[in-house]
């Protein structure tokens, strides 16, 4: 179950290349960080890995085969702003169960309280919503997780809570994680190795 990005290149229309020739390999259970200044396409690259966007050049492979366009995507992504990643007209139990039914153990691990499930998204804080986004992304068929500035908007305690939960699950399921963050100390704390996105220019 290896995730491989081969020679990925992306640009909008006929504009200049945002990046070209990006090669990254992620092993199961491996936690890899990406650094680099903002505006160089890190987020776009993540979106390509998660299947939100198609690369202009190159391909994303899993176990040597290209990823399917339809069906459950084995690479799931958690974004910076949970408010945008959640349908404001759904109650939280609907949001949580959209992809699968997370078990109580996972909810406890992430600190999701039973009482929140009957609420609307706008009644919860960003930190609380982000736990739902994480739980939702950790379906049984998720092999790799992409965390794009996932905890940037959260306070230190919530950040540590969420990461501890994810690390525990990643270890148990041999799940690979790609971490994008500006906080070098968080990166050092979490990652086995760090890739500099600038090197691909």
């Amino acid at each position: 179950m290896q995730l491989e990005a081969k020679d990925i290149g992306f640009r909008y229309g006929d504009g200049p290349w945002l990046f070209q020739g990006v090669n990254i390999t992620l092993e199961p259970g491996e936690i890899v960080g990406i650094t680099g200044p903002s505006g160089r396409g890190k987020t776009t690259f993540c979106r390509i890995l998660a299947g939100f966007e198609s690369p202009i050049e190159g391909a994303v492979h899993m176990n040597g085969a290209p990823l399917q366009k339809n069906g459950y995507h084995p690479v799931q992504m958690v974004l910076q702003h949970p408010e945008k990643a959640i349908n404001p007209r759904w109650k939280l139990h609907q949001i949580l169960n959209e992809g699968y039914q997370p078990d109580q153990e996972l909810l406890n691990l992430l600190g999701i309280e039973q009482e929140w499930l009957t609420r609307w998204p706008h009644e919860l804080s960003g930190g609380e919503l982000q736990r739902f986004c994480v739980a939702r992304a950790l379906g049984p068929n998720t092999r790799f997780l992409i965390a794009d500035e996932m905890t940037t908007m959260l306070d230190a305690n919530t950040q540590a809570q969420i990461w501890h939960a994810i690390m525990e699950i990643a270890k148990k399921r041999e799940m690979g994680i790609l971490v994008v963050t500006h906080e070098s100390k968080l990166m050092q704390r979490l990652c086995h190795r760090v890739i500099n996105f600038n090197e691909f220019d």
Partner: peptide
């Protein structure tokens, strides 16, 4: 203290639970 301890450059250990909701 908990916030300080939870920073990645310190112990990175969170305390459980979350802030109470204004309704409770």
């Amino acid at each position: 203290k908990a916030l300080w301890r939870a920073l990645p450059q310190n112990e990175f250990i969170p305390i459980p639970g979350s802030q109470p909701h204004p309704s409770s």
